[in-house]
Simulated assay, not measured.
Amino acid sequence: MKFSVFTASTPEWTPQEAATELAAQGWDGIEWRVIDQNDAPTPGFWAGNKATWPMTGLLDSVPEIARITSGAGLEYSGLGGYARCDNHDDVETVLAATAALGARQVRVNVLPLGNSTMGGQEPTGLSYPELFDSTREHYEWVAQRAAHYGVKALIELHHGSVTASASSARRLLEGLDSRHVGVIHDLGNLLIEGWESPLPALELLGPYLAHIHVKNARWVRTGDPDEVGAAVWVNEWAPLAEGQGSVLDYFRALAAVGYDDWVTVEDFSTDVPLAERTAGNLTFLRRAAELAGLNVNRSEHVSAGSTPKG
């Protein structure tokens, strides 16, 4: 098993700083965030994130992405793309960039639910069956283009989307070539929507289980009840060791299904400063993986600017 960091969660670092710092801490790889984002006066996870590569001109950025990544001695766990499956031009670009980098796999987003306001968008009002069928149609095209480039397009289990659960993702991808489409199982997202007991969910995904994202979340009670006097609960991100999901139990489920590939961390908690947070997360994850009986990679990395191994 190898560990990487998704740079959505490292907004204060430039790409060079992120690669250098993560390599020095002992991470195996990096998952670059790729999106045209809004500016912000202070770097944040979703706007003004310094460790983000713009979607516009992405193919022109490939040599610089490769230079920074290989110069730090890091591997790619994949690319953290935001191209939506119905935007075929953007999908084509991220698939081509993934192939050019040798990054193997890239997230290609499914359609949001009809009542979703995620990302500040206006709800479409479309029904779930309509959105599901449309996503399936687009993903059939995505699978063909991923095969053309020799890479894999990944669906992330995500609240507010047509694939919030393992069951819905398996149904969406059924019959498509698992060499070129797969699923990102995400512990933290599933605590918000789509929770299914990890072991049977991972077993259900079978050959479509392609990648793992780990973060944690918790539900907190607000101070005000709703109109009928009932308690109101909202979700928030939490440090890996303090959320409602057991990372140890999650890793035990991964061990039970024989998963031995990348685990990418995207910790959106802010209780601890960034450098301390990422370093602590690696220590925590290695310990949990070892206790779960997983094979933990302990490779050494070269520093940025030196000659990478191999």
Rank of each mutant, 00 (worst) to 15 (best):
Q244S: 12
H211I: 06
L190F: 03
L191A: 02
T264Q: 06
S246Q: 11
V247M: 07
P225W: 07
D271F: 07
W219S: 08
P207W: 13
A241H: 14
L199K: 07
P207A: 10
L202T: 03
V257K: 10
L190A: 07
W195P: 14
Y259N: 00
A241Q: 15
Y208I: 08
E242A: 13
G188D: 09
T264W: 03
W237V: 02
A210Q: 08
K215A: 11
F268A: 15
G229P: 09
L240V: 02
Q244W: 05
N216G: 08
T222F: 02
A255G: 12
L240I: 05
V263Y: 00
P200T: 01
D260Y: 10
G223L: 06
W219F: 08
N189C: 14
D261Y: 11
F251L: 11
F251S: 04
A241L: 12
L240N: 03
Q244D: 15
K215S: 10
A210S: 15
A255Y: 06
L190M: 11
D226C: 01
G206V: 04
D224S: 14
A217W: 10
L199G: 12
E266C: 10
L191Q: 12
S197D: 11
P200I: 04
H211Q: 14
V247I: 15
V257F: 04
I212Y: 04
P198E: 04
H213W: 06
V232Q: 04
V228Q: 13
E242Y: 11
G223F: 13
V214C: 08
L190K: 12
L202F: 06
V214E: 01
P225S: 09
G245W: 01
K215Y: 04
N189G: 14
A201N: 13
H211A: 14
A231T: 06
S246E: 13
R252Q: 14
E266G: 06
D261K: 15
V214W: 03
Q244T: 09
E203R: 00
P239V: 10
D261I: 11
E227D: 04
G243R: 01
R252W: 06
N216I: 04
E236I: 15
P225V: 13
D260M: 09
D260V: 09
L202H: 04
P225C: 07
A217R: 12
S269Q: 12
S269H: 11
A255D: 15
L202P: 09
A241T: 06
P207T: 11
K215M: 04
Q244N: 10
P200L: 09
E236S: 05
T264K: 09
A210M: 10
V263S: 01
A241K: 12
L199I: 01
V214G: 00
F251I: 03
G188S: 08
V214I: 15
G194V: 13
I212W: 02
D249I: 04
R252P: 02
L209I: 00
F268D: 12
R221E: 14
H213C: 07
A217P: 00
S197T: 14
